[in-house]
Amino acid sequence: MKDIQASKIQEVIKDLCIQSNLHLPQDVEDALCCAYDAETFPRAKEVLGISKENLQIAKDKCMPICQDTGATCVYAEIGQDVHIVGDFEKAIQDGVVAGYTEGFLRKSIAADPIRRGNTGDNTPAFITTKIVPGDSLKLTVVPKGCGSENMSRLVMLTPGDGVDGVVQFVMDTVIKAGSNPCPPIVVGVGIGGTFDKVAWLAKKALMRPLNEKNPDPYYAELEEKLLKKINKTGIGPAGLGGKTTCLGVAIETMPTHVAGLPVAVNVSCHVTRRASIVL
């Protein structure tokens, strides 16, 4: 049994909130740079050039890459041999308050979905936990902007719709989203499970580095096929036309009911942020 103090969790969550908003993960930055090099359409090249330069200015000036510093999604993989000393959830929420205040990040959470208002400190963080073997604790912070979140969709297809139905739904979602989610986008696709689990699968897919494929060759091929198809739409960077509409597609799956084929598409922007630490 390993003890981890809640105060330590609070401190690392604060750091992850700030770090994730100032620096893109290397795989996303690399994908953006490759897209810039490969882009042939002049207007698109100009747009990607600004996006690249933006990353540098954010680093140099310690400024958030994007003003939408997101809803704070926190994922915790908790080893079953870990003992957390203190209040786990409070530690995370307090870490978010500290990160968003000390890091000069935008507080973007409406206190009530209909009556609005603002919680003032970007809480609550949206926390997902999983118990895993071992004695370590992995914490991941994903600040998720709403321009792309608003373009995400879920459908309960029927088994007869099959893979063609899945491809059609992903393409419809991407085309309907157009310029809104700040392309080039990253697309997370969940297939299977239940109504609630499929949304989680799509979100989880967005956390996979862009240079990693689905381990199942069938789905790795489907990811590649969707990526090519999306990049043939011509939507382009910022939706102004071009070769680069999508930087990566990741699919996560689960078994599902004999009568069902749930599909969820979680769209993310070219500022797809995440930062992790293992304690």
Binding site: S51, E53, N54, A58, M63, P64, C182
Partner: peptide, 9 residues
């Protein structure tokens, strides 16, 4: 149109 995501720029 301004370039979405280019907040620091």
């Amino acid at each position: 149109s301004a370039i979405g995501g280019a907040g620091a720029y």
